[in-house]
């Protein structure tokens, strides 16, 4: 009787052990799932603050590195920048063509990161008005983005009617709806109509040479500068380290350049005037502007050297 009781107890223990053992892998899988969700959430929520912190740290590190690097590298990089083909002339430009600080962006309309940067760039440059010169250049990565070139041409065709920036905005904001479209041209016509273009002229310009030649000129400039990806941003001829790209770090770089220009006798002031600045942003279209002033102020320790 006693033995039978022991056997029953042992059986119960074995069953309990087996049950526990069969639950362990499921528990581990559940744990991994929870850890994945928690990790992803943590990355997502902390990415913004981390970016801001690392930008500051990188900015400081970049300052230190810039101080250590021989000046000859910087001079050589600037020389390459200055000697590169001028790109579309006159360029698509916002701000003042005579401003001491030039921000030049090479971007691809079909690149998702460029669309994100587009939104942030508007926020970055808004306070500066005519104290800066912002040049946007098309650099379609035609090997991987099938609609990028046509989008750039569509923007230039709109520019021929003085509405480059409106079209640029439409293309970036609506990027997901045309990026993989088989008939992007029709979608672009919709945007052209939406921003009030003369459709007959647009349809003629979009297949004509002048718009394409402007895109090709920008591409030649980008190729000459050996741009390895989009977006690539220059401030006064020096490449901005893209890992530093955000509103505040960019404004710090611009402010530093403005300060240098001011202390060197330039017309720019040192701090952005954040009031009523949106109204100051001047949209200058391709019909009546001069070539980009690539010989503007050359100094600025916060900026990484050109590639």
């Amino acid at each position: 009787m006693e033995n039978k009781k022991n056997i029953n107890t042992n059986n119960t223990n074995i069953n309990n052990n087996t049950a526990a053992k069969s639950k362990l892998p499921l528990a581990l899988i559940g744990l991994a799932l929870l850890a994945t969700i928690a990790g992803g959430w943590w990355l997502l929520s902390s990415s913004k603050s981390q970016t801001a912190q690392s930008n500051t740290a990188k900015s400081n590190a970049s300052n230190a590195n810039a101080a250590k690097k021989p000046a000859v590298d910087e001079t050589a990089a600037l020389k390459i920048y200055e000697n590169a083909p001028s790109g579309a002339t006159p360029p698509n430009l916002q701000g003042s063509p005579t401003a001491a600080v030039t921000i030049e962006e090479f971007a691809d309309f079909q690149c998702p990161t460029c669309a994100t940067v587009h939104t942030k760039m508007k926020e970055i440059i808004a306070p500066y008005g005519n104290r800066i010169k912002f040049i946007y250049r098309s650099y379609p990565l035609i090997q991987i983005h099938k609609n990028a070139y046509e989008a750039a041409v569509a923007a230039e065709a709109a520019g021929l009617q003085g509405k480059y920036w409106q079209m640029q905005d439409q293309l970036f904001v609506n990027q997901p709806s045309w990026a993989n479209s088989q008939n992007a041209r029709q979608t672009f016509e919709g945007y052209a109509s939406k921003i009030g273009l003369d459709m007959a002229k647009y349809q003629s310009d979009v297949v004509g040479l002048p718009a394409k030649q402007r895109v090709d000129a920008d591409m030649r400039r980008g190729q000459s500068l050996k741009i390895s990806g989009t977006p690539t941003i220059y401030i006064n001829g020096k490449t901005v380290d893209f890992s530093q790209f955000d509103v505040q770090p960019m404004r710090q770089l611009i402010d530093a350049e403005l300060q240098k220009a001011a202390s060197g006798g330039g017309a720019a002031t040192s701090q952005p005037q954040t009031n009523s600045v949106a109204n100051q942003t001047q949209t200058i279209n391709s019909a009546n502007q001069t070539a980009p002033n690539v010989n503007a102020a050359k100094s600025g320790s916060n900026i990484k050297e050109g590639k």
């Binding site: 992803g40 990415s47 990161t113 991987i144 990806g229 890992s243």
Partner: peptide, 29 residues
């Protein structure tokens, strides 16, 4: 998971060993 999060936040992915991370991660593929 790291790459997925970076894709959704639109942040640049560090590219210290090879060149062209952005080109790959923003490609149509």
């Amino acid at each position: 998971v790291y790459l997925t999060v970076k894709h959704f936040t639109g942040e640049a992915v560090p590219c210290s060993v090879v060149e062209g991370c952005e080109q790959v991660l923003t490609s149509s593929y």
